[in-house]
């Protein structure tokens, strides 16, 4: 059997009138890989996912999922993939349990297995005591968790997640990523009758995950990433590759006494041409300044800050975070 990537997109293009939402993008996702698909709002992420799922016909190009042509074999692919859409994957007027039951039955899970999976999903989502709550009464974070629980109920081979952790608290986001890792690293077991032969034939690989997120710290944990902007892929590779290739300089982390003030002062210095910095970013209570060979400017920065009555605090050169890279990419 020829080697097939889990997802293969060739020259994928979609136009809406004059507007090209997705513009000849190419990528592949290997089995058992977490593939992060990052881009600003409106860059074509959701359109791409819709084409990958066969919800939208590509204008040009083709998509293969699990070695099958999406346009032709939609019905064969659907049972083997899971999808969590950005906002609306649950029925608001159904209870938590009813939603899960519906998902499970729709994917043909047998009763005992379904009960087991539902119990697991409830546990993962931390919703054990809320089975009978109507979904519209859940908080935003809980809703996302429930939607994820529902999407993996049938243990899909490929999981498409469109901003699964939006609005989810940090604790649950971590639990969620732990779970993703577990899914990816646990070999698929042919629990359902369908497709068992094929699954056995494939090697011991876990779930393939195609994920979009706006949390760059999360994205950092993907195996591979693609940045998309204006419908084009502008960078791809492992997080480290992207960081080393795409970063316009080093990052100096400063913890000044007044972070917002420090940004102002440094920006004006930058505008006056006193400091040749690429980027000055407020990062919580910290400030990141980015420039090639940053240590050259350390002294100047200290002086400028002190002159404005701001204590520069500790300054360390750190590995750039993906967020720094992302923003740098989007701005260039």
């Amino acid at each position: 059997m020829d080697y097939q990537p889990a997802i293969l997109a060739k020259d994928l293009t979609k136009r809406f009138g004059d507007f090209t939402a997705v513009d000849h993008i190419n990528f592949n996702v290997q089995h058992g890989e977490i593939f992060g698909f990052l881009g600003p709002n409106g860059s074509g992420k959701t359109t791409t996912i819709r084409m990958l799922l066969g919800l939208m016909k590509p204008g040009e190009g083709s998509v293969e999922v699990l070695g099958l042509k999406v346009e032709k074999d939609t019905s064969k692919i659907r049972p083997r993939v899971g999808y969590m859409s950005q906002r609306f994957s649950l029925y608001n007027d159904l209870t938590v349990l009813q939603n899960l039951n519906f998902y499970g039955q729709a994917y043909g899970l047998e009763n005992s297995l379904l009960q087991k999976r539902i119990a697991e999903a409830l546990h993962m989502a931390g919703l054990e005591r809320h089975e009978n709550t109507q979904t519209r009464d859940l908080s935003g974070g809980w809703r996302q968790r429930l939607a994820l629980g529902a999407a993996i109920l049938h243990r899909p081979e490929v999981l498409f997640l469109d901003e699964p952790t939006a609005g989810v608290d940090p604790l649950s986001r971590r639990a969620f990523w732990d779970l993703l890792y577990k899914l990816v690293s646990t070999p698929l077991q042919p629990e359902t009758n369908q497709a068992s032969l094929e699954s056995e034939m494939r090697e011991q690989r876990g779930v393939t995950v195609f994920i979009t997120t706006h949390y760059m710290d999360e994205a950092e944990h993907s195996h591979r990433l693609a940045f998309i902007q204006h419908g084009k892929i502008i960078a791809s590779g492992s997080p480290i590759e992207i960081k080393t290739q795409k970063m316009p300089g080093d990052v100096l982390e400063i913890s000044p006494s007044d972070a917002a003030g420090a940004v102002k002062v440094l920006r004006s210095a930058q505008n006056d041409g006193k400091l040749p910095l690429n980027e000055i970013v407020l990062y919580g209570s910290l400030v990141h300044v980015i420039a090639p060979d940053i240590l050259r400017h350390e002294q100047a920065i200290t002086v400028i800050l002190q002159n404005s009555g701001i204590q520069p605090g500790v300054m360390t050169v750190i590995e750039p975070s993906l967020e720094d890279v992302f923003i740098a990419c989007m701005k260039s």
């Binding site: 659907r78 859409s85 609306f88 994957s89 608001n92 043909g108």
Partner: peptide, 14 residues
Amino acid sequence: ELGTLEQLLVMPFS
């Protein structure tokens, strides 16, 4: 209108 149709369509329903 409520947006759930998309989810329904990706499920393995014919």
